[in-house]
Design a protein around this nucleic acid. Structure first.
Length: 222
DNA sequence: GACCAGGCACATC
DNA sequence: GATGTGCATGGT
């Protein structure tokens, strides 16, 4: 017996309300943020993006033209800064060389082809690619992250050993393609993850507690 | 001071 | 194919 996906969404939305993820920012800023947030808290990503904006570098060509060491230094607060400078540069090379530096052109490509192109970039994995598709290109690609995996596994909706594609399909096979819904759902999962489903169990007051049959606890195995 | 954060690629067995 | 490791800053 497991809880249903629509119950999960309803409970999270009722509890936390709309999350307003990545509103009012440029698509390019979303792309940069998607790379910088890899295994990193958003507060540190925020600092790095602010520094880039301050330097007037939130533009594909401008950032691509910048020396790699200088880019690394600017994004330092986001951690793994030398690695991420290279990854950003790899992604910018795609944007510039394949799409002439135009995000509009890049986003006019069909979703499966664009996803494949993004995944071909060294440093862009499935979560980063899907974040770009959903939050920058506004295409209905569900984003899976550590919290999504952990929350679903702990509540018996998937196996603890489920891989990225299985979890993504779990959502996409159930919820019809809907950019706004996918956006909100993922943001809500991260929100409840921050509050209650970290590595160490922190379940007090978790709005998902009562969803399990008989109010049984989740199984915080990882 | 230890532990954690909106991953990913690569080495090794 | 599975498992382990490097990458790094800043908050709790």
């Amino acid at each position: 017996m497991t809880i249903r996906i629509d119950q999960l969404y309803a409970r999270l939305f009722d509890h936390f309300g709309p999350q307003h993820w990545w509103p009012g920012q440029s698509p390019f800023e979303v792309i940069v943020g998607a790379v910088l947030t890899q295994n990193t808290s958003w507060i540190n990503v925020r600092r790095a993006i602010d520094r880039l904006r301050e330097a007037d570098l939130l533009d594909p060509q401008a950032m691509y033209d910048l020396d790699l060491d200088e880019l690394a230094e600017l994004i330092r607060p986001a951690g793994y800064y030398r690695l991420k400078a290279r990854r950003l540069n790899n992604l910018l090379a795609l944007v510039i060389e394949q799409y002439g530096g135009s995000l509009e052109r890049m986003f006019s490509v069909d979703m499966p082809s664009l996803r494949e192109a993004l995944l071909s970039v060294n440093g862009v994995g499935p979560q980063t690619a899907d974040s770009i598709l959903l939050y920058a290109a506004e295409m209905p690609s569900f984003v899976v992250d550590t919290y999504t995996h952990r929350i679903l596994a702990r509540h018996g909706m998937i196996g603890f050993d489920a891989d990225y594609h299985q979890i993504k399909s779990f959502f996409e096979d159930t919820i019809e393609p809907d950019v706004a819904r996918y956006n909100e759902f993922h943001a809500l999962l991260v929100r409840v993850g921050h509050a209650h489903c970290r590595r160490k169990p922190k379940c007090d007051g978790c709005p998902l507690e009562a969803l399990l049959p008989g109010g049984e606890p989740c199984t915080p195995d990882f």
